[in-house]
Write a protein that binds this DNA or RNA. Sequence first.
DNA 1: GAGTGGTCTAGACCACATA
DNA 2: ATGTGGTCTAGACCACTCG
Lengths: 253, 253
Amino acid sequence: MGTTQLESVPEPKYWHLKTVLSEALDSEFSVGEILPNERELAARFGVARATLRQALEQLELEGRLQRRRGVGTTVAPPRVGVAVGTEQHAWPGASGDVWQSVDSVLATPPAVVAAALECSTDEPVHTVRRSRMSHGQRVATELLYILAAAVPDLTAIDAPSGAARARAVLRELQHLTLEGQDRAVELGSARADDAKELDRLPGSPVLVVTTRFFAQGRTAAVSVATYRADTCRLTFGDPAGVEIHHDPEQQAS
Amino acid sequence: MGTTQLESVPEPKYWHLKTVLSEALDSEFSVGEILPNERELAARFGVARATLRQALEQLELEGRLQRRRGVGTTVAPPRVGVAVGTEQHAWPGASGDVWQSVDSVLATPPAVVAAALECSTDEPVHTVRRSRMSHGQRVATELLYILAAAVPDLTAIDAPSGAARARAVLRELQHLTLEGQDRAVELGSARADDAKELDRLPGSPVLVVTTRFFAQGRTAAVSVATYRADTCRLTFGDPAGVEIHHDPEQQAS
DNA sequence: GAGTGGTCTAGACCACATA
DNA sequence: ATGTGGTCTAGACCACTCG
């Protein structure tokens, strides 16, 4: 029989490509090194550029590559561990908080937030914008919604917005008794404004951490934090060493 | 001046499409409803199918749509909340555990796991495969690696593999004192085997939850759990109501 | 201005589910 | 057998960065 055993389950080209590239990254490239451009790589592997890009997209999703328009594709460093669960049972802005206040205004909440706060969409909330750095890079942005009714003394504040106002809101928050909190993580895609601040394109994958803070028998505040999914590994609970040399990313066995 | 103000920052077509579709989903479709097929939709919006697909991909990533080859595209139900942090400080397999054992073998660990376990790649580990259901759907698969040295009595077990063996391994584990644990969440793409079990295509986005268990002064076990990112919202900490009506997914403001 | 990645097109064929 | 989404191609142009 001249017919050799054909691939009974032919792997998609981009999948195979991804495997080959992944191995090449491990053995022939070092962190920060720049890869040949997409047209060159596609030609080298004998595929269309779109197919090559499909493989690159997955590798970027897994945190192996970093692509920047006008610059090129580089080998990404291992994901950084970012502690999310350590400030257990403390209000945002408590001492030791790693977030930096950017701005704050008093406004009505978007519908989704109003639902989480169990309030109507026309009840005023303080909206605080914060950002978080890690390893010299901005890794997350946050929108913090605080029921205006929960921090009544704040009406004395004059400034209508600004970082100083944000800090004043958070300072006021510390006087409340935190009765509990709640956290959820899910996949999302970056809104235009978050993307810009995180130096990513709109739509790039992010990990959305939603935290609800309970006080006075109700949900008093909600935080929606948006982390870069490509560069971050969120860590929880008992801290400790943060190693796992290279990250347990998935890949064809 | 005849020149009207042009869009100084022209939005990509697929981004605009995504916004339009997203609004249509909210107002004109109900959960489970099937959308027109891709060729039809592309024609209706006057774009190439590839462009339409780019929009659909993002909506699927955000959990708004579900696409199945040979079937069609349907409106996805809201993401289900899946508790991840409640069994705090208990071994896998303890009473109340929501995971179902599937199989177990004694083998040498992959390099990444060996690093997490701080052991060499030729030290034997029990590898237990488990899966997790929620709301009638399989939402996660897990590979649990347990240092063979940590459960020495197990050598008495005869069966070389199988679910019964898996349960025996976990039963043995309960005798150890759990000294602490460690958890991390990151984005990954489904390996071929996990994808099959989760009824997804290889490479689809998943949330990878890595848990390390400490006993006898070292890392005694490591769990790598793979959750469907499209359908799951991982919840942590103090449980409570799991509401947030529709999910704080990101989108063009 | 040259070179990069990002977007978009119009087609083709394939794998899969269903009737 | 038909219709669906998934893969792939070969081109074009655009937005961005940098020398």
